[in-house]
Amino acid sequence: MKIDSKYLIAVAILACCWGCGENNKKVYDASAIQELDKLTETIGNLTSCSFTLNSQLVSSDGTSDRQSDVYFGGENKMYIFSDRNDIRRGFWYDGSKLSVFDFDNKGYDEVNAPRTIMETIDSVHNRYGIDFPAADFFYPTFTDDLMAQFDAIVLNGSKAIDGADCHEIFASNKNLEVFIYIDKSTKLPKQFEIYHLDEKKGNSFVATFSNWKENPNLSANMFKFSPPSNATKSSIFK
């Protein structure tokens, strides 16, 4: 019996879609989404903030530790001091220009930057592959972004992180599992953990927030950079 090849392909596609649908059944826990919305709203209400982020990335290349002190002033000012495996860099964004200074090699670089912090983070990430610490949390669409990318988001209960009583939210898709801890009292992120399930299985990223300051008075000067006399222009943004 001769079977029409088009018929076979169509059946195969349908079977595939059905299978995918079964495996990717989406579960969005209303309580988890509510807590994520509160977090997104709390961050969206900040007019300035500062925090410290300690992170550890584990990959096949080894372990990389990073500590970042982050300062956001309004929608268009940012300063980050980052110490990654004892390589220290500063990033200054003043609303029109993003500057980076390598404290150890005394090299600096500057690029024109978009109008806001979030556009700048987006732009630098897309153009130069530079990640800003915990930037995901600061997108105004954080909850929706999570829902768009994860098949399951549930509230797993409570857990104390560094003495802070936190909601534990678990999100997963076929490639990743993410745990997000939200401080119950401040509605701000306390910790997040990312574990790979895909070909990078074994890779993980854990980051802990501390020293949150909500709406501090930050001097405009701290977001401006002018290169020191003994610094040299380098191609750090490339």
């Binding site: 992170s55 806001t116 556009e119 990640d131 995901d136 669409t141 972004d145 490639n175 990312i194």
Partner: peptide, 14 residues
């Protein structure tokens, strides 16, 4: 997906 730190796809900033 390759989410490590700032790795999620987001609605375009701004």
């Amino acid at each position: 997906s390759d989410l490590i730190a700032q790795r999620m796809r987001h609605a375009p900033a701004g």
